[in-house]
Design a protein around this nucleic acid. Structure first.
Lengths: 221, 221
DNA sequence: GATACCATTTTGGGATACCAAACTGGTATC
DNA sequence: GATACCAGTTTGGTATCCCAAAATGGTATC
């Protein structure tokens, strides 16, 4: 694996895992030293992560993108558009086996599963479901949106019941898709996304003080 | 303006204007010499253009992305999803004046307007309409999709009647949006996109031999 | 004539040197 | 004490150099 891709991957993981906090400043030289690479691959990584919205320019320098509540709401709207479109396509030519694989993902989580795994599977459920549409651009759009949302979802204060409800909704969506009921599946997915958007933004807004205390830049809606 | 942005902009324009043909190989050294910049800004430009889908990796080197008919169809589906979603948002909070500005864009084209101007305005109509949604991500998605489609639209063999029909459809969409009739506007836009997608792909498929003769790589659907 | 093989060139990935602009910290001035 | 100012440092933008891998082209062999 080239260093270029390696730096990009490692830096992305650090940002998504909040090891580098939202709003933190980045210098190319620090990254260079941190990953033992020279500036060429570092720059390539920053340029790529910029298009993913994970880092941004701050005048002359770079910063890890802050959590922006207004932006999160816009992403959720965007996500709903592309994810519902993908799901409708999937309903048209749903393959039994493919949907079973997604369902198995959900089954893999139980009460003994660590929280971070629930988090990851919850994201992958939506991404893999979009992949089934067969439309590369809808798939990429969903994956990109989920990536942009993932740090915020990680910060969200979620109770157990919320996770349980999400899983029930996921299963209901799959059931409708399996039967090819596009309108019903779309309705369920829209409700699921709208609901989780509301809870996400509310939770972050309520905990904004706490998040700032942890050094995380959180921009209001 | 920094050279980084300058090289990126100039190279993008050359590719979109087909001055560098789809499928053509690019070497960093050639670009370097062509624009009088060093490899650092050249590589930054290539990395950015790669995310826009205008250039791609070909093993170790770079190529201008070929026209891919299957991909064009997928982009059109993606575009329909995001553009319709944006239009629905616009209908919710449509400002009179903003829509008038878009209409003025259409008015600026008459029988004396050069073909390339019609082409540009036809694209900008959709992009600016999406901007009115107020959702940055839907807007970017539409702009990105239109960029990816633009080379193909430029190659399309269009008769005068097709352009006239497109303008009529554009005006009908604006009329519905002005009245806040979201469903009607969405229906018209969907039909407009679906229709132009069909004509675009048909035209390119029919002229594929001629396009290849001009040195343009055109991948079948 | 086709093919296998080798020397040469080209090319992208990476490292490093240099520069101008921005930032920093301290100092002098009021 | 506040502020204007200046020297030193940091930092991103750019140019250049090096290298290994891949492409190229010619040649010897069958």
């Amino acid at each position: 694996m080239s260093q270029m891709q390696s730096v990009e991957r490692q830096l992305r993981e650090m940002i998504l895992a909040l090891e580098i906090g939202p709003g933190e400043r980045l210098t190319e030289r620090w990254i260079e030293g941190r990953f033992g690479a020279s500036r060429t691959p570092v720059r390539a990584a920053l340029l790529r992560l910029e298009t993913e919205g994970l880092v941004g320019r701050d005048g002359r320098g770079w910063t890890v993108s802050p959590i922006n509540l207004a932006e999160l709401e816009q992403i959720a709207v965007y996500r709903e558009a592309v994810e519902v479109a993908a799901l409708r396509l999937t309903c048209m030519h749903a393959e039994r086996g493919a949907i079973d694989v997604i369902e198995a993902m959900l089954d893999s989580c139980d009460e003994n599963t660590p929280r971070e795994e629930w988090h990851r599977v919850g994201m992958d459920f939506h991404i893999e479901l979009a992949r089934l549409s067969g439309n590369e651009f809808l798939f990429r759009a969903v994956r990109d949106a989920m990536t942009r949302l993932s740090r915020a979802r990680w910060l969200e204060v979620r109770d157990e019941t919320a996770l349980g409800r999400a899983w029930l909704e996921h299963r209901a969506i799959l059931a409708a898709a399996r039967l090819g009921q596009a309108d019903e599946a779309a309705r369920l997915l829209s409700a699921h996304i709208t609901g989780s958007r509301g809870r996400l933004v509310t939770s972050l807004a309520n905990d904004r003080r706490g998040l700032r205390a942890r050094g995380f830049a959180v921009v209001a809606a």
